[in-house]
Design a protein around this nucleic acid. Sequence first.
DNA 1: TTCAATTACCGACAGGTTGTCGGTAATCCA
DNA 2: TGGATTACCGACAACCTGTCGGTAATTGAA
Lengths: 207, 207
Amino acid sequence: MRVVKTAEERKNEILDVAEELFAQKGFDHASTNDIIHRIGIARGTLYHHFSSKEEILDAIVDRMTDQAVARAKRVAADREEPLLERLTGTIGALNIDSASGHTVMEQLHKPQNALLHQKMQERLLSGVVPLIAGLIEEGNAAGIFHTEFPTEASEMIMIYSNTAFDELAELIPEEKERKGRAFIYHTERLLGAEEGSLQAAMIGFFI
Amino acid sequence: MRVVKTAEERKNEILDVAEELFAQKGFDHASTNDIIHRIGIARGTLYHHFSSKEEILDAIVDRMTDQAVARAKRVAADREEPLLERLTGTIGALNIDSASGHTVMEQLHKPQNALLHQKMQERLLSGVVPLIAGLIEEGNAAGIFHTEFPTEASEMIMIYSNTAFDELAELIPEEKERKGRAFIYHTERLLGAEEGSLQAAMIGFFI
DNA sequence: TTCAATTACCGACAGGTTGTCGGTAATCCA
DNA sequence: TGGATTACCGACAACCTGTCGGTAATTGAA
């Protein structure tokens, strides 16, 4: 029997299933057959909504990064909060882990998901680096940060936190804590903040 | 006619061709058929020497990283040179670009090579981070660096330089120079070195 | 209400892929 | 010299992705 849905509904259905399968098996090892059988649609239906398997991946990346970047934007722009909280929250918004996409992020650093990971990293960075840079400039103006390179410092912080905190799950608690402390310490140094000044705002988030 | 070679010879022949094809077309889009036709061997021959396509990729990664890490080790251990030169040289040893694997590295940041890139990054980092950490500790002892987290600082420097300098080719000269200067500036801050103290040693390498 | 255009859906199929396997030829060594 | 080892071969099974002609549901205009 033939079940008809709106294009948007069907597209999201495909993305939901594909997201789970790509995360589980990796992009290469999850086949379009897996997807259509799981949903119960025909080959042609999938290719009616997406023109290639890679386009499905890109749509997933879009969906995930849009959410994360929107969250980061909201936090960064919230002038009610103190600057340090906004900075911490904006950096943390990328750890989608802690929010919705649990299953996905857990599997993301596996070698079979290199492509998904790389595409997400690219999108997340281009969205969030300018936000953090803006906050750093605010801090410069307020006299709590002192750096000549806000954008590059932002880039360094985000690249590191995105790459190094990937494998956090594999570490023992002491190593985790050490890594978290080191990250705060280094963020202070990069921003030219006084030693210990970021501790209070960041310690809950990163340790 | 059947041409017989030693296993080692044939393996290297396969790796040479595969390396070029993977770099050109990407791992997914370069087929094992491409490889065997280019060499002029049969399917079975390839699978006699390697048990899967992915194993070929891993062998390529091994070959490339082994060279780079060995080079880095040599530079890091050379106590004839001043510490700052050793540091710079060790960091730079990863830019395989400047050395042998020209064609490969140029194509490495393309999306289709995400897997190759990720695997190389993992291997390079695990090899070189401890070397840099050792040099930082030497600098601490000599009183020119001041940091509590040599290993983590090393990690941050290497992750950044490996990721951010990927796309250097796409920047205009001014941006390139700014990025290079920022990198030196940030390395000084992370290591707790005096401002400007790394400039002389690093400027030739990174700008 | 009707009927044509649009849009979602179907499934067979072409042309590609990787990895397997039984068999053959060269080489090594006892 | 002759048996074991090792390199090599190519047909084949079992997948894969993307295409395409055709069918059924929905929409919207007359």
